[in-house]
């Protein structure tokens, strides 16, 4: 199994237009989706991200930290998953309730770079 990060992207406040009832339905759908991932051993972790935040930029000594939501599209949460390959990770992403409830939702599927098998095997020689 390989690790992937699924980054959930919404345009602006994508869920603001949902009625309270729809919001509840969305939450319920997420619970079902997540429970299924846990049952199949696919989920390592998942967290929603608060829409407010800062963006740090600049160089050491000349940092800026501006508001986060200047761009049109923001990351609203992540799923850290285990999948056989990128295709399975994509399938898992497609099952996310975001697509059924949030117009313009996009999910970025990114393989996590983990330490390679057999790496760091060079031991000091003692000299």
């Amino acid at each position: 199994m390989k690790e992937f990060m699924l980054l959930i992207r919404n345009e602006g406040d994508g869920k603001a237009s949902l009625s309270p009832e729809q919001q509840q339905q969305f939450i319920n759908a997420c619970m079902v989706y997540i429970e299924d991932l846990i049952k199949k051993g696919n989920l390592k972790g998942a967290q929603p991200l608060i829409r407010d935040g800062r963006i740090v930029s600049g160089t050491p000594g000349a940092f800026k930290d501006g508001p986060y939501n200047e761009s049109k599209e923001i990351i609203v949460g992540y799923y850290h998953i285990l999948a056989k390959d990128i295709d399975e990770a994509i399938d898992i992403a497609k099952g996310n309730p975001e697509f059924a409830f949030v117009k313009g939702a996009r999910i970025e599927v990114r393989p996590i770079k983990t330490r390679e098998e057999g790496a760091n095997k060079d031991y000091p020689t003692g000299k």
Binding site: C30, M31, E35, I38, L43, A46, Q47, P48, G77
Partner: peptide, 11 residues
């Protein structure tokens, strides 16, 4: 996690 606690408990 608030998001995963309930489904994890159900499981």
């Amino acid at each position: 996690s608030e998001l995963t606690a309930e489904p994890a408990l159900n499981h």
